[in-house]
Amino acid sequence: MTLPVLICDDSLLARKQVRKSLPEFFDADILTAGNGVEALAILRSQEIGLVFLDLTMPELDGIGVLEAIKQEGMDCFVIVISADIQPEMQKRVTELGALAFIHKPVNPEKLVVILKQYGLI
């Protein structure tokens, strides 16, 4: 079954890196957002199964997106992919319900391990 996936990052390069890191056999319908506001607009208007979320973004950052997802009880998995790798930040996003925290630049092998771990592939 095709999984609706959202890649949210203000950097075009970062969005491409995530897309390219996904395994070829991963059956996904991929949407993109350039900041947290755009991401929430998409999340509120359609079913998204998995979100790849950057943290440091203009308009609304990744923490703001995670808070809204939690508050509004949206049913989606979130994997944070961030350049802000401080342990306290990792703890904060996990507390807000993120499944996993991946350091930028994204490592494809690591991503596959996480996707397998949560039965997404």
């Binding site: 950097s11 075009l12 390069l13 970062a14 440091t56 350049a83 802000d84 401080q86 930028k104």
Partner: peptide, 19 residues
């Protein structure tokens, strides 16, 4: 596109320095 790429490389490097 090049500017975006350079900015992202710098953001990642800055993330390491901040940590």
């Amino acid at each position: 596109e090049q500017r975006d790429c350079l900015q992202e490389l710098i953001n990642v490097a800055m993330g390491l320095a901040s940590d």
